[in-house]
């Protein structure tokens, strides 16, 4: 269990350490701090979005041990000991990840609010299934709602990122 510090008013803070985008991070969190708020407010990782905040929309998707989870339903204190990737962790200094490139090439976002989560779901899919079918792509992003694109170009971009021939 994480170390606990109690202040004069009796409020408890919990020491957590986790890895995020390859960086070790240690911090003090209150029990009721949500992971999505912690990374946005404390770590300035604002690429992760808040939408419904109830697990429905996927805009807060982060990869935890490589698997997509909703950061709005994760307590920061429960992040202790885990390893995370957020959208900021995909690109290197001057090179975007291939999935990001293909999202641009195929016009797979309009307002872009869903894109970080969508791209991370795609990334997790391609890591475990390098040549997915269209159905598998749609299944993998079914927890990522998009209000703009109608998904067609998103699916194309992900298939293209897997190296498969896709109509533009």
């Amino acid at each position: 269990m994480a170390n606990v510090l109690t202040d004069k008013e009796g409020k408890k803070r919990y020491l957590v350490s986790f890895t995020i985008n390859g960086d070790e991070h240690q911090g003090l969190v209150k029990a009721n701090t949500l992971f999505v708020n912690f990374i946005r407010d404390e770590l300035d990782l604002t690429g992760t979005k808040r939408g419904c905040e109830l697990g429905d929309c996927g805009s807060c998707t982060v990869l935890m041990e490589g698997k997509p989870v909703n950061a709005c339903l994760l307590l920061a204190v429960e992040a202790d000991g885990h390893s995370f990737t957020t959208i900021e962790g995909l690109a290197t200094t001057n090179k975007l990840d291939l999935v990001q490139e293909k999202f641009i090439e195929y016009g797979a976002f309009q307002c872009g609010y869903c894109a970080p989560g969508m791209i991370l779901s795609a990334k997790a899919l391609l890591n475990s299934n390098p040549k997915p079918t269209e159905h598998e792509v749609r299944e993998a992003i079914s927890g990522n709602l998009c209000r703009c694109t109608g998904y067609v170009n998103v699916v194309k971009a992900i298939l293209a990122a897997s190296g498969q021939e896709v109509e533009h």
Partner: peptide
């Protein structure tokens, strides 16, 4: 059930 993110939690 649910979707991938929820199934991972």
């Amino acid at each position: 059930m649910a979707h991938n993110q929820i199934r991972n939690s």
